[in-house]
Design a protein around this nucleic acid. Structure first.
Lengths: 261, 261
DNA sequence: GAGTGGTCTAGACCACGCG
DNA sequence: GCGTGGTCTAGACCACTCA
């Protein structure tokens, strides 16, 4: 029971010259926003169930159908996971059926399960000052503290991915090389667990490049071997960038897979 | 008015040993299937409006809400396009706001609109016999007739993409180099218009490679320039493969963009 | 059997596009 | 002002999970 709808739909806001009217916000979008706030505030932790649709409907003072539509959208964005008969759960990078949610590199033959998990070797992990590029990508000022790490992922004993990554120092203070290498499972799952930061979506820019001498050596290829450069920016709930990652992928036994709708 | 629901939900089909029960098919999924059939049969052409939700509800003998949910899914798969106040339309590669629906290559600065349309140069277009690889990708037998084409796309005067593509000869009989070069707009739109074949989704496998001498010459780069190899298989409504395309992308002024959800 | 999400319906009203 | 898709409600019943 209880409350009245959070806001009246703003059907008649003043319109701005030159721009289309500010648009009207349906109830279920407002409910979606409220659920998003609770997710962001950590009211429900990754992997946990959120309240049932009926409970949320009562809490927000709307019908079940309206809550349902809000949850539908959040589930479509992979922020929530519905399980019939059990409840609706906060998405997590752990306990994912697919091992790595953001990694699109696939073995040429077989699939990720036949290949087994990656072996990780952390080469470097330390706190540095952000240069201009890193600062821009993470929404920081140049010179602010960031954690920089480098590691090599190997599949079936063959070094395949060289990753450099940068995380804002403020959110990940105290991250160690040990955490980066010892956590069993995706690094994003470790960041959720240890720092409460959940990466929710990401953008990638892909190029073909040649490695420098050090990169080639780490991947055990020649400097004439073309590699995929994958620059990823990952975002948390409020669309704030929380990670910059640059991967160099060997594509002699793997390929980057993409589905176009 | 009219008909009874197309099928009773098959709640109690015999279950197969070792497999989970055959599942139950909600009404809206059946409606979705019927709409899909009409699309595939060409009852409504790309760009045209399909009947209103009320009309379809009457035609199928279900409620508007059920038709709505079926259409929602088809719109989510980009097969239909909803426009409030106007109707629901069959998606098309023409009149797309984004010029190229399947092309993920973006200029490093600015966007596709600032860059202007690509200039196309068709180098080759002829009928050949499918080799084993092409036959497998297109679901043909080796030796069957396929149309093979090669072309270069240039942006702002700079050759950027070299494409080889293969189309099943049966569906595209009579395709000429002239059609490939003269049609203003996406090639996929031309194939819709001239052959009634609509590419609905695609898969891409991406690698970093070095070009051979001929490829390098066509793209005006050296043989030591790393390029993106993008092998795309495109599918029509019934998930039948209808095109194999291999692109070599220069990534010195462009990058392949991907969003991860 | 109780509780969850999933489907389906019927009806009311709203926003949008267009003649 | 009409027809379209879009929102919201209320209620019934179904499928799934787990105790």
């Amino acid at each position: 029971m209880s409350a009245t709808p959070p806001f009246a739909a703003d059907t008649a806001l003043p319109s701005v010259a030159g721009l289309p009217a500010p648009a009207f916000s349906p109830l279920y979008q407002q409910i979606k926003g409220l659920i998003l706030q609770s997710l962001q505030a950590g009211e429900w932790k990754p992997g946990e169930a959120i309240p049932s649709e009926m409970d949320l409907a009562a809490r927000f003072g709307v019908s079940q159908g309206t809550v349902r539509k809000a949850i539908d959208e959040l589930a479509g964005e992979n922020l929530l996971l519905r399980r019939q008969g059990k409840g609706t759960f906060v998405s997590t990078h752990a306990e994912q059926q697919v091992q790595y949610r953001f990694l699109r590199l696939m073995p040429d033959s077989g699939d990720a399960t036949t290949e087994g998990p990656a072996e990780r070797r952390v080469i470097d992990c330390r706190s540095v000052r952000a240069n201009a590029e890193v600062a821009r990508a993470l929404g920081l000022r140049a010179g602010e503290s960031v954690i920089q790490a480098r590691r090599v992922l190997s599949f079936q004993g063959e070094p395949t991915i060289l990753e450099d990554l940068w995380l804002p120092g403020s959110a990940f203070k105290g991250l160690t090389a040990l955490q980066m290498s010892d956590y069993p499972g995706p690094t994003y799952a470790m960041l959720e667990l240890e720092f409460g930061v959940r990466m929710v979506r990401a953008d990638e820019k892909i190029r073909a490049v040649l490695p420098d001498a050090e990169q080639a050596s780490l991947l055990q290829v020649t400097e004439q071997t073309p590699l995929l450069s994958v620059v990823r920016t990952s975002y948390t709930y409020n669309d704030a960038p929380m990670e910059l990652r640059r991967g160099l992928y060997r594509t002699d036994r793997h390929h980057y897979r993409n589905a176009l709708g």
